[in-house]
Amino acid sequence: MKKRWLVLNSVIVFNSLIVVWASIVAAARLPVYILPGPLPVAQALIARFPSLLDSTLITAEEAVAGLGASIVAGMAIAMVFAQWRGLRQLAYPYTILLQTVPILAIAPLIIEWVGTSIFSVMIVTFIICLAPIIANTTQGLISVEENMVHLFLMHKATPLQALLKLRLPHALPQFFTGIRIAAGISVIGAFTGELFAGSTRVGEGGLGYAMTYAKNQMETAYLFALVIAATVLGFSLFFLVMFFEWLALHNWHESSRPQAGD
């Protein structure tokens, strides 16, 4: 029920924003290169759809690859952290560091080292996605109730059994929270990477590259179309993760609907 309300609310808010946007542009008689109204943006969106789609797919590829790698690595690191307390206390602060170091400062360095390829964009995305996955998954793995651990001990469970049959399933909700946060920022990561890396294939870059190009050409309407594409991409990834989360948890977990934020 609540979900349906949420969808309806979003639609209403969205339409209202469009109306407000159109009214402002009309009332202030703003030129299209300063602030285009909804109509020129829609026209740009339709007219240049093929290149828009190309850019979106390139960014999507980078975001998904970076996110996927961060899920695999983040989970592995979290399992190591959960198994060895000493190591966790030693190394955990550095995962926070990952989150606080400005990606804008790191991106040029990575491109310097790896070169201007799609690969370096993926690395930027990977770095920005890693911290929330490590933090949330680790928390889930170590927050198992003591009695549960004792129960497993009474049945002579090995550490591996305890990990596979107790800690990992217990950590699933938090693991998905981490992925959800990471999915949202993966597009930002890919985007940031592209701003610096551009593309080796001229005119065929991802959204970030295309946006820099459109800005330089004063194609403001297309710039807006690109922003919309980026938003849609971010949302799609987010909802894709939510779908998997629902698949994995809806049977047994209290909150089939997502908790807000971290």
């Binding site: 109730e145 009695n147 009474m154 107790l166 399933p169 049977n251 977990h253």
Partner: peptide
């Protein structure tokens, strides 16, 4: 031996 805890300690999944 079997141990029965105060809470049922069932695995919710």
């Amino acid at each position: 031996m079997s141990f029965i805890f105060q809470d049922a300690t069932l695995l919710p999944w």
